[in-house]
Amino acid sequence: MSAGQTRTLTVYDTAIGKKAAVAVTGVVLFGFVIAHMLGNLQVFLGPKALNDYAESLHAVPTVLWAARLVLLGSVAVHITFTVQLVAISNAARPVGYRSKKSLASTYASRTMKLTGPLLLAFVLYHLAHFTWPGLAMGAYSHDPADVYGNVVRGFSVPWVCAIYLVAQILLGLHLYHGAWSLFQTLGLSHPKYDRVRDLAPKLVALGVVLGNLSIPLAVLSRVVR
């Protein structure tokens, strides 16, 4: 906008508006991560439970595709706005410091720009591994009707499990800072609840990492076979 012009502000106009959109889409993706984990943990209930659950997800194609569109849209908004915001911040300090100390930021907060793209790469790999198997991952063979068998065959390859292990650590870091940050971005702060807001992201992020990792570890240790 040039000086003198008058018009209303939209979400797109300011960094806070864009950041709020990143936070809201983050909530959507966070919800997916938790639902995805809870669904997959049914692997511990045996082949029938997991395969029936997988089939029920595909029962109503309209619902399935609506959910996929919401998720894809969230990913698109989350990434597009973040890239724009990072560009703003990079331009805001053209000359860096010779010496700069971090006092309050966390490893998780400083690596958001790194864990984000790495997680995108992992999600593409994960889709190629279990959903549209175009890549041969070790001794893996895909059977669309037998999700349980796919999980067991997929995670019986140690180097594949190693990729998942690293990815879960990245996910944990991203979720930890994201969960803390989104409340702040959306202005949800209150002295009465701030202690919960500080603690909950750590517990939820740790829970997701451990929950997700329990699956490949159970297959490797032959608890699930």
Binding site: A20, A92, R93, S105, S109, W180, S181, T185
Partner: peptide
């Protein structure tokens, strides 16, 4: 200026100890 990614470095550096809860209020 850049945008806020909630590192809290500002609060730690502020000679007056102004809290980042003010940033949440501004966002709200």
């Amino acid at each position: 200026f850049g945008h806020c990614t909630n590192h809290n470095e500002c609060e730690a550096a502020c000679p007056k100890g102004i809290s980042v809860t003010n940033i949440a209020r501004m966002n709200r």
